[in-house]
Design a protein around this nucleic acid. Structure first.
Length: 702
RNA sequence: UGGCCUAUGGUGUAAUGGUAACACAGCGGUUUUUGGUACCGUCGUUCAAGGUUCGAGUCCUUGUAGGCCAACCA
């Protein structure tokens, strides 16, 4: 039986290679090493899924080890939160361990290093030490205390441990090489004095080991075979290995460190420091605010463990900088919830509907499917009566034929109920519709099997029966930031990009009565609206729902489209020509394509083109639009009335990597000198720096 | 005035010297008692220039661009 070969990411490949080279499968051991100074986020999920995934794949143990060497920042509360999140994701660790468990062993090894002349106590201030350290581009110099005698070092270190010194007065340093091109090898600090209470060791220690001294040795103590971390630790690897050299004994497993890129998500930030800032600054309600990219936040928002694991799996692991689109995460949760979340009806923005020919006081309990994607999910009953709520957006007095919801004189199906027809509306003094009067056809009852019930009606609406509805608070979340990468702007604080509308509260929405006893964290699909779950703030007296993610809304797309696209039939032809132009090898071919493009462009007007310009993304689009523009004879008036759009396009195009795009942009500016001013500096720079001879030649012409 | 890492569609990842692929997003359509789902179609990619090779996204050289490294943080 041949198993389908799944391609391995480079980390999995490393493990497979080590196994192939003779490492026993039974020697495999991994670890996930969080520092308990904050909550886990979706970026950590990559590491968790990688390490625990490898464990599951090879049946190897994975330790959960808290890297707790800095009592100033770490707290038991974070330990608890981290454990809760990992369990929730569905992973099981072999041993729960703490770096602080190894303080004694680490201390003993440090003594040995001192005795071997490989570590010394330095009495200088941190400023002095930093100054001697040099910079990445210049070497460091030795500390005046570097050559203290072993006896003196031992005595001093003993006093440091005993609490005889003030914080910051002494450190223990490894004696390596102040001239190393690797800053971490310039006599790194192994211990500092900290008179702080540790969440586990209390006040027993006055000295605490640094990360580099602790991490590799902890891996070694635990006999971890592969120690995976993120890329910013790459330059620590040399030191990781040096420290291991000092204590390693055959035939023990010698851990190796390997690095992968951290995972970033669009429209959020992913550093614990920045997340802490959001929490402490009151921008969110806490680490588990549903807008936070933390595991706890995602959980409260309604994300499922499956969806997060799937996201990690399909996002993959690599070594390059990345910003994964949040739409992929949303896809994962919709995909999961589509199969598992019960469908229910809720009305968020209600307008009253009166079925005028339905008897007053009558109620019916209609059968509704719980989940069409899951046969086993069964059915429930929903109450129907003469007075209902539907969404305000689902009714228009008059509408075009693309709107196939309720309009005066037209029919729609009420989901699981009857076909109704809107007859009239009642408005208040301000002209707002307060009631829609409809008639229903009793023969069209859903599932009744009558020919009338099988009639095809284009629109289907969700609804709730007013006398039976339960009031609930609904919280609608949107992305926390309006910028795709809020912390990527060098001169701006990421908080400037916070989305002021990231939370919209609907204090009084109406939900069907079956939701009365729904439990916190349970997920639902509010039909036609989105996936929602019950928030932890919810009580039986007052239900609170969070919107996890809206359903794909193709109606919004249709509606938002310009009413007058006046069908630019030739635009696709322009784009095809532009695409081929980019790939063309010969000038002859390019000339032919230019002609083709110009012919197609001749039927396009500037007014049709302008709205498209802002949407340009690919080389092809930029090229197609610019070549079309270049085929026009534009007046000063044309330019003036679209100056902003044109300048935006040109500004971006001039910076594109593709030289054809840049050339067309330059050419266009050349033809229309009034645009030159806005790009003057860039053009001057290009005249000096651009590598393309055609561009340079064109630039000399103006 | 250094060291190290990275570069594949709009985004994320495959291709392990042998036909550049998958997913998301986008666009178009079919089905539908959710304008959901499902299904079908479509768009679009190897940073540049040299070199090695019968053959290069992959190996080499030189550039270019981006990232990391100067906490008594991890």
């Amino acid at each position: 039986m041949t198993e389908e070969k799944k391609s391995l990411n480079f980390i999995e490949q490393i493990v497979a290679d080590d196994l192939a080279k003779g490492l026993a499968k039974s020697s495999l051991r991994f670890r996930f090493p969080p520092e308990p100074n904050g909550y886990l986020h979706i970026g950590h999920a990559a590491s968790i899924c990688l390490n625990f995934g490898l464990g599951e794949q090879y049946g190897a143990p994975v330790n959960l080890r808290f890297d707790d060497t800095n009592p100033a920042k770490e707290e038991q509360a974070y330990v608890d939160a981290i454990k809760r999140d990992i369990k929730w994701l569905g992973f099981h660790w072999d041993k729960e361990l703490y770096s602080s468990d190894y303080f004694d062993q680490l201390y003993d090894w440090a003594i040995e290093l001192i005795k071997a002349g490989k570590a010394y106590v330095d009495d200088q201030t941190s400023e002095q030490i930093a100054a001697q350290k040099g910079t990445p581009t210049s070497v460091g110099s030795n500390s005046p205390y570097r050559d203290r005698s072993v006896e003196e070092n031992l005595a001093l270190f003993e006093q440091m441990k005993a609490g005889a010194f003030a914080e910051g007065s002494h450190v223990l340093r490894a004696k390596i090489d102040m001239h190393s091109p690797n800053m971490h090898m310039r006599d790194p600090i192994m211990y500092r004095i900290l008179n702080k209470k540790h969440h586990r060791t209390g006040t027993r220690w006055h000295i605490y080991p640094m990360y580099d001294w602790t991490h590799g040795e902890s891996d070694y103590i635990e006999q971890v075979s592969h120690s995976f971390c993120t890329l910013e630790f790459k330059s620590h690897r040399e030191l990781y290995d040096w420290f291991l050299d000092q204590v390693y004994e055959k035939p023990n497993i010698r851990p190796i460190q390997r690095e992968f890129a951290r995972r970033n998500l669009s429209y959020t930030v992913m550093s614990k420091r920045k997340l802490l800032e959001l929490v402490e600054g009151g921008y969110v309600t806490g680490w588990d605010d549903p807008r936070m990219p933390t595991i706890s936040g995602l959980r409260r928002r309604g994300y499922t463990p499956n969806s997060i694991r799937k996201f990690s799996e399909i996002s993959g692991i690599s070594k390059r900088d990345n910003v994964t689109d949040v739409s992929l995460l949303e896809f994962c949760v919709k995909d999961d919830l589509n199969k598992t979340a019960p469908r229910v009806m809720a009305v968020l923005n209600p307008v009253k509907v009166v079925i005028t020919n339905y008897p007053e006081g009558k109620e019916e309990w209609l059968v509704a499917e719980n989940n069409p994607e899951d046969e086993k999910s069964g059915h429930r009953k929903v109450p129907f009566s003469r007075e209902l709520y539907i969404e305000r957006e689902d009714f228009r007095e008059v509408a075009n034929k693309r709107f196939f919801r309720l309009t005066l004189g037209k029919e729609v199906r009420l989901k699981n109920a009857y076909i109704i027809k809107a007859e009239s509306v009642i408005k208040d003094d301000s002209g707002e519709i307060i009631e829609i009067h409809c008639s229903y056809d009793p023969l069209t009852k859903s599932g009744s099997g009558t020919p009338e019930s099988k009639r095809k009606v284009k629109g289907t609406l969700h609804w709730v029966s007013i006398p039976h509805a339960i009031k609930a608070e609904v919280r609608l979340y949107d992305r926390l930031f309006i910028d795709e990468a809020p912390d990527s702007h060098k001169d701006k604080d990421f908080k400037e990009f916070i989305n002021p509308n990231s939370l919209k509260i609907i204090p009084e929405a109406y939900v069907e009565p079956s939701l009365k006893n729904a439990k916190p964290e349970s997920n639902f699909q509010f039909q036609r609206l989105g996936y929602f779950n019950i928030d932890t703030d919810s009580t039986p007296e007052k239900l609170v729902f969070n919107r996890t993610v809206p359903l794909t809304d193709s109606w919004a797309k249709i509606e938002n489209k310009k009413e007058t696209p006046s069908t630019i039939n030739s635009m696709p032809m322009v784009m095809t020509a532009a695409g081929k132009y980019l790939k063309a090898r010969e000038d002859e071919e390019r000339n032919a394509l230019t002609k083709q493009l110009q012919e197609a462009a001749a039927t396009i007007t500037l007014e049709q083109l302008v709205p498209l310009l802002a949407t340009a993304q690919s080389n092809k689009e930029y090229l197609g639009y610019l070549m079309t523009l270049n085929s026009f004879q534009l007046s000063e008036g044309d330019i003036a009335s679209h100056k902003e759009v044109l300048n935006t396009l040109l500004g971006k195009a001039l910076l594109m990597k593709n030289s054809y795009v840049r050339f067309q942009a330059v050419d266009f500016i050349g033809r229309n000198p009034s645009l030159k001013k806005a790009h003057e500096t860039l053009l001057k720079k290009m005249a000096v720096e651009d590598k393309n001879t055609h561009i340079l030649a064109r630039l000399t012409e103006f």
